[in-house]
Amino acid sequence: MKTGLLRLLAGAAMIAMAANTVHAQSPDESAAQDIVTRQLEAFLAGDFDEAYSYASPGIRKLFPSLEQFMSMVRTGYLPVLRPGNYAFGRMENLADGRLVWEVLIQGPGGEDYTAVYFMERQGDGSWKVDGVSLRRGAAGMT
Rank of each mutant, 00 (worst) to 15 (best):
S56W: 12
E29F: 00
S26F: 01
A16Y: 09
A19K: 01
L9R: 12
D47G: 12
A95K: 03
A24P: 00
A138S: 14
P108I: 12
I15Q: 05
V103C: 11
G107Q: 03
L8V: 07
V103N: 07
R60H: 14
V100F: 02
I59H: 04
Q25G: 02
Q106D: 11
I59W: 06
Y113Q: 02
A12H: 07
R7W: 13
A45F: 11
Y117P: 00
L62T: 14
Y54H: 05
K61W: 11
G125E: 06
F69G: 01
M141V: 05
A87D: 09
L134Y: 13
L8A: 14
S30Q: 08
L40T: 08
Y77M: 04
S133K: 12
L6F: 11
K61G: 09
G11K: 03
A138C: 12
N20I: 04
G11D: 11
A18L: 14
D112P: 06
V36T: 11
E67L: 00
L99E: 09
E50N: 08
F88M: 09
G123H: 08
A45I: 04
Q39T: 07
A55C: 07
N85V: 12
M17L: 12
R7L: 12
Q25C: 00
E111I: 08
M70Y: 04
G109W: 01
